[in-house]
Each structure stands twice: as structure tokens, then as C-alpha cells.
Design a protein around this nucleic acid. Sequence first.
RNA 1: UCCCCUGUAGCUCAGUUGGCAGAGCAAGUGGCUGUUAACCACUGGGUCCGUGGUUCAAAUCCGCGCGGGGGAGCCA
Length: 462
Amino acid sequence: MKDIKTILAERSTGSTITAKGWARTKRDTKNAIFVELYDGSCFTGLQCVFDAGSMSEATATALARTTTGAALAVTGTLVDSPAAGQPVELKATALEVIGECPADSYPLQKKAHSLEFLREIAHLRPRTNTIGAAARMRDEMAYAVHTFYHDRGFKYVHTPIITASDCEGAGEMFQTTTLDLDAIAKHGGPVDYSKDFFGKKAFLSVSGQLNVETYCMALGKVYTFGPTFRAENSNTTRHLAEFWMIEPEIAFAELPDDMELAEDFVKHLLSWALDKCSEDMAFFEKRVQPGLIEMLDSVRSKKFAHMTYTDAVAELEKHKDSFEFKPFWGCDLQTEHERYLSETVIGGPVIVTDYPKELKAFYMRLNEDGKTVRAMDVLVPRIGEIIGGSEREYRYDVLVANMKAKGLDPAAYWWYLDLRRFGSAPHAGFGLGFERLLRYVTGIENIRDVIPFPRAVKQADF
RNA sequence: UCCCCUGUAGCUCAGUUGGCAGAGCAAGUGGCUGUUAACCACUGGGUCCGUGGUUCAAAUCCGCGCGGGGGAGCCA
């Protein structure tokens, strides 16, 4: 059996085919009944036409049971469509209702639903145009990620999801345990983690970076792409408690190499979306965010601007009246600052580099000035920060000093420090939030609508 | 964690100064010479989020609770 994407692509008119899928809509006229069949293989459905005058009684009965959402098998002849709207259609001769879908209780109707409502029926929402298209785009973008790195000789490394070290202090962590918390609560005594599964405290990973650096120092060019967990109490359209992150790491590389990789990567992903997902992208353009395609197209053809943090702050200080938080050297760039830089100052993507060391993580390479580190953030219009990365500190003594300055115990990072003791080399990498990329590409505002089952504060249903 | 908005039919929302619960879409029925989120007509459909209070009278005003959304912070 061919899926609808194949049927529509082949257009083998005159052939007899059976298509299986679900009814999106049924439209009645006196002489003909139209059923739009979709199977998820592509955005467009297959129009099935039933001749009211010549259909069998069995088909008429099945048609009466056909409602929005019903699972169907339709057999007929593929013909050129006499009407506008679709090049071919299925002139149906037989219809089987595989699974009924009672119209009076089925939550999805042939009308537009709000994304808020659809979140409450996450098990049914992939059947809608918007969420279905987002799901196909998610698949394509994941494939594009692997294609990009594989074609460049990067090795895909699976870093652990469970970790016993508070890696980079990148955020609040979820603790994992097999201890009986109810029993411990009854006793009221201190918790003995030596009796826990790993013999010590364990958490879900907030980043694969530290682990992937070990393989970077062995395989040269590596990346991770996996789930990441942050237990932060944040309730926004761009945060999840469980999200997917891509983290490449390249050996014998410095910050300019890292920036070049990030730019190539973003452009590869945008090109993939625009060139290979045009049908779904056309839907996002039409129904989700008009202007989306032109905006993405301009980004992929434009050289990313570069700017140091110091220059960025100087630029922001010229317009300080337009900000709630007044910018000054040493301040963390607020969302309003980031968007102003990319949207107003540059009018496109901009990479901001060389941030004050106090603002960034311990593993970033210290500059000669002793005040800034070789960090980079890629800022894009509408979204703000989409990539954060840096050249890593590969000098043992400087790294240890950085850790101490940030109140970290070097002994806890003994294996990470070993990378600097044995054959250390400059290396760099970055992290890209996969769902943030999907927000950017699809135009869907809320991050909870670009992941099948969102996990956020007080939200772990389905 | 902080600030703001919001909760009324299956969905999206209106509801005036506190005075009989409304519309569009969806559903059901009928019509329509090929429809494209079809169209036209009719019909059915309500714990006004919950709870306590003010009042002759509360969807409407007040307190508390719960849910949803947006923004900030944190970050990817």
C-alpha cells in the first residue's frame, strides 16, 4: 500500500489504488460527496470523490458513518481532478470504515482550535494541521542535524543522562533516587546516600558538554544530541524542564572556528527547512506567521554580524532610554538588549563575543585582558539567544584558578581536569536548543507546541 | 520566584449601571449541479471554574482556592 505522499507524487492516473488514513473533512453535495483523506505522510490530503448516483448500498452506509477523524480505507481510480484545488483525486468505488470517530464526543472539529486547547488533548493534537506539520518539521530538522555533522566527519556521541556530578552548575537539577522517600520522611533522620542506587547523590544531566569534551580529545570532531533536564521554576514560552540539545565540540579549534561552525549549522538547518519542507513551511507562512519564509531566507543568505560584548554594550548605552534595564559594562544582557541588537542595530543574526568572565561558566577560556572570556552567543531576531558557546580553557592552571574563583571544588572535576593534563589542546563548542530552533523555523511561538509531550513546571501529563 | 491578564455551550468569545444566558463556528435534520476551513435554512445544546461573603437580586462586586495565558528573571 502506498502512502498519500507517494500517491500524490507519482500521479499515476488511471491506476486502481487503495488509500488508508483518516477523514479530515467530508463535504456533501447532491451528486457528489467529498472526503479529504490524510495519513500524516505529508501535509496535503487525498480528495476522495463518491458519486451519489452510482454508489453501492455498502458504500452509502459506510459514508454515513464517516465523520471527521474516522479511520478509512478508500479504493478507487486515481484521476485528474476536474476542479481546481488539487491536480489528482481518487474516484472512489469502495469505502471501508476501519475505525469510527463519534462526532458528538470527538474533541477535534473541522475548525481552527487554539493551541492552548490542543495542549490539553496532547494525545489527539498531532492529528491537527499545525501540530502535525510541526511534528514532521521536528523529524526533518533532527535528520538535518545528523546529516550536517555526519557529512563533516563529526562523530555522534551518546553522553549519559544520569550524572553524579553537578556538571557546570548550568541550572537546577532533577535528583534521581531509588530510596523510599516516604519511609525516610517518617523517620525524620538524615538521608544516607550510600544506600542509594549509585551509592551517592545522582541527577539528570543538564548538559552533555563536559562528557563530550572527553571524546572530543579522542575523536576530534564530536557532537551530542539528546534530552536535557533543568528543574528551574521558569514559566515562559521558551523554556521546558525536558528539552533536546545539540552540542558539537571541535578539537584544535578556537573561537572563530566555533563561530563559523555555528553560522554554517544554522544556515544548513534553515536551508533544509526551506528547500525540503516547502509544503509544511507554506502552511506555517500562511496560518502561523506571515513573512516567515522571507525572513528565514534572508538569514541564510546573509553573513552573520560579529560584535564584542564591549562594543555591544557601547551600542546599547547610546539608546539607554529605550530599555527598562539600563545597560552598563559588566551587566548581563537582558532579553530586551539581545533583541535590540539583532532586530534594530543589525537587522539580522549577530554573534556577540568576549563576555566578562563573571557572567560566564568556569570552563570558558580567559582572554589576555584577564577580564573577558572567549564566549559567544548567537542572537537572532524574534527569538533572542539561540546558541551559546565558547572556546574552552585548556590550560590546567588557569582552569583550576577559574574553578576556585567560582567556588567549585577542583577535586570533583578530576577527570575533566585530566583532559588538561594529558595532551591538552584548544577546543571549542556550543549548545543549540532543538525546540528553540523549531520555534524559529516554524514560527510557532510557544515551545510547548513544538515538542510532542511538553514537560514543564506542574506539567507532566500524558 | 515576581508582575499583569483570564476562566460563560463541544470550540472561540460577547454579556452595558448588579435585574429573564447570547453570537459565530461545531453537532443533528433538511436543502443545494464538483466541494476546497463548502454554502443555505431549521433544531438541540449551560454546575457562567470551585468555595465563602455583600445584596431584595451576582456570570457581573469582594475574599480564598484551583486552572489557563502573557511578560520578567534563569537559560538552551
